[in-house]
């Protein structure tokens, strides 16, 4: 842990603090919710912030604070799942492409290029429109994974390509280390920093895309996410009614979460750049 912070710039700390706040809010607090905040009329309607309802209530009779914790939980979960699978798949396929070369590299590279060229949101909108007006979370997650694995894959492929030429890999190779050991001992540490930064970026893209769908009402209405919260707020005229807390709280949560994620990811890549320089 000590060495983790050795080259850590200030922005990394700040990002970690912001994300930690979001994780407490979305990862821990939902367990303490007095009931399912999604249920309509589980609270008095249209309350202003008070001791009983910290952020007030919606015009559907939902407690905004607890709704926010649920929304944050679901958004984070989606982002983590998407980023986790994208990163694993991306690192694996990127290594395969860069390391194996040949036709495998060509085929994989084509898919990476092609998927990077195709904007994901229109495809998701198409799917939502065709599959009954709303997309269930698992489908969104799968689609986002399909569109996001090429980012880490491309980077890892480039690293793997240069690594193949590196001295110490060759030394390891000739001294009879197995390919798997070479991967684990020499290549993974090298790409770990970049992959971590990429992972966090993908969390960001995942949450952002789902929210985009949700804001226009094409994500699942059965689940609260930051985006659906905004959607309901807009749809029930929260703005015209001057209920800025209702719409403002998910907006601020998204902004803080994203700034935190970005700070951590850029801090991480700064750190791995600094570490490489100091070697």
């Amino acid at each position: 842990m000590r060495s983790f912070f050795a080259h850590a710039p200030f922005r990394l700390y700040l990002g970690i603090v912001l994300i930690a706040a979001c994780i407490i809010l979305g990862g821990i607090l939902p367990w303490f919710a007095p009931g399912d905040p999604l249920v309509w009329y589980s609270a008095p309607r249209n309350q202003s912030p008070s001791a009983a309802h910290w952020l007030g209530t919606t015009s559907l009779g939902q407690d905004v604070f607890w709704l926010l914790t649920y929304a944050l939980r679901n958004s984070l979960l989606l982002g983590l799942v998407v980023a986790g699978f994208s990163t694993i798949i991306g690192v694996f396929l990127g290594l395969a492409a860069g390391y194996a070369g040949g036709w495998l590299d060509r085929v994989l590279s084509f898919f990476m290029d092609a998927l990077l060229c195709i904007p994901s949101l229109p495809i998701l909108i198409l799917m939502a429109a065709l599959f009954g007006g709303q997309l269930a979370m698992p489908i969104i997650a799968v689609a986002l994974i399909v569109f996001n694995w090429p980012y880490p894959a491309r980077q890892v492929r480039a690293v793997a390509l240069t690594m193949r030429e590196r001295e110490f890999i060759n030394v390891a190779w000739f001294s009879g280390e197995s390919s798997v050991r070479i991967l684990v001992r020499h290549i993974f540490p090298y790409i770990a920093g970049w992959s971590a930064a990429n992972f966090i970026n993908t969390v960001l893209v995942g949450i952002s895309t789902e929210s985009a769908l949700a804001v226009i009402g094409l994500s699942s209405a059965q689940q609260a996410t930051l985006g659906t919260m905004i959607y309901w707020a807009i749809n029930y005229q929260a703005l015209l009614a001057g209920k800025y807390v209702w719409i403002g709280s998910p907006v601020i949560a998204i902004v803080l979460l994203f700034i935190g994620l970005f700070l951590v990811s850029s801090g991480l890549s700064m750190r791995s750049a600094a570490r490489r320089m100091s070697v």
Partner: peptide, 22 residues
């Protein structure tokens, strides 16, 4: 810049419209 860049366009669009239209 760091505070602005990570914000999705539509969130910023919302904020701007809340502020400057409502």
């Amino acid at each position: 810049a760091i505070c602005l860049y990570p914000i999705p366009y539509y969130i910023l669009a919302l904020v701007l419209s809340i502020l400057f239209s409502y």
